[in-house]
């Protein structure tokens, strides 16, 4: 049995330790907001925060994570009130099909936690998630607007 700290709660799972964290979260913990897109850490649909850092969970085996690591998924990001990135995403109607957007939001919120005022080039370099619908222009605008909001608030 492995213990994981997900969204502030400790959960116990009985899973083979080579199972990627993504599938532990989706199938054993039952949080399906985190998506499967590629399984090889290319697309970023599976992005979660691991100790505050955007991490692609589809290529991270359970054995690499302990109870000491704080895992936050999309379900835990705006658990009390929506995260400013989620607010801005709603305002700008960023999502198209939406499938990649949870990963985008996790990547964007992590970026802003580390770099509160990213330049366009910072955002372009750091947000490497794949969106096939092509929401990139609004993702870029969304990160900038969220940064502005969060900086002003802080």
């Amino acid at each position: 049995m492995a213990k994981l700290n997900i969204n502030g709660k400790v959960v116990e799972v009985d899973v083979e330790e080579d199972t990627p964290l993504l599938w532990v979260i989706r199938e054993h913990v039952g949080l399906t907001g985190t998506k499967y897109g590629c399984g090889v850490a290319q697309c970023g649909a599976c992005t979660v925060h691991l100790d505050g850092v955007a991490t692609r969970s589809c290529a991270l085996p359970l054995s690499a994570v302990t109870e000491e690591n704080r895992i936050v998924t999309i379900e835990g990001l705006g658990a009390e009130t929506p995260h400013p990135v989620q607010q801005v995403w709603a305002e700008l109607d960023v999502a198209q099909c939406g499938y990649c957007q949870v990963g985008m939001i996790m990547a964007a919120s992590s970026l802003l936690a580390q770099n509160p005022s990213p330049s366009d080039d910072d955002i372009r370099a750091e947000i490497t998630n794949i969106c096939r619908c092509g929401t990139y222009p609004r993702v870029l605008a969304g990160v900038k607007l969220a940064a502005e909001r969060m900086t002003n608030r802080g």
Binding site: G33, T34, I74, Q86, A90, A95, Q101, V102, I105
Partner: peptide, 17 residues
């Protein structure tokens, strides 16, 4: 705005997957 956005932003939309 789209009518089908908010559940895409908090992970609650259930896709077939």
């Amino acid at each position: 705005k789209r009518l089908d956005t908010l559940d895409k932003l908090d992970g609650s939309l259930v896709y077939g997957m």
